[in-house]
Amino acid sequence: MGDSMGTDTGRKIRVLVAKPGLDGHDRGAKVVARALRDAGMEVIYTGLRQTPEQIVAAAIQEDVDVIAMSILSGAHNVLFPKVMDLLREKGVDDILVVGGGIIPDEDIPALKECGIADIFTPGTSTSETVKFIEENVKRRS
């Protein structure tokens, strides 16, 4: 794992780990949050039941570089794109957005199409997620 320091300013990568929708399965979100923190990132976890509006507002307010969303209820096809739409509405295009959870392979292309950088499904190691974020984070504010 790298040191997760932004090369431009030396600022740590800031990540919002978010649970959109109503499902309470946040074991994965919490494990990922801790792994990102152990990899040297600053992590904010939203807690459960966040609306897309709340997630986007938190991301802007906390000035994060990355939004990592987790859904296990099957609502991803509705809620992930909604987050992307809201980000675009707010003129935000430099936040890296990734998703995870129980997400069927066949749903992934459309989610990527709408701007989710990658989707991590069950069995993904946290080090893969860390590496992906380090290599793909867009901004160093």
């Binding site: 929708g21 109503l22 209820s73 099957g74 609502a75 096809n77 509705v78 809620l79 909604k82």
Partner: peptide, 22 residues
Amino acid sequence: DLPTQIGYDSDHELALGEVGKV
């Protein structure tokens, strides 16, 4: 489904995407 478990009707805004899923 989750809206039922959390006491929302299917037409509630928080039920968006969740109706009949789990």
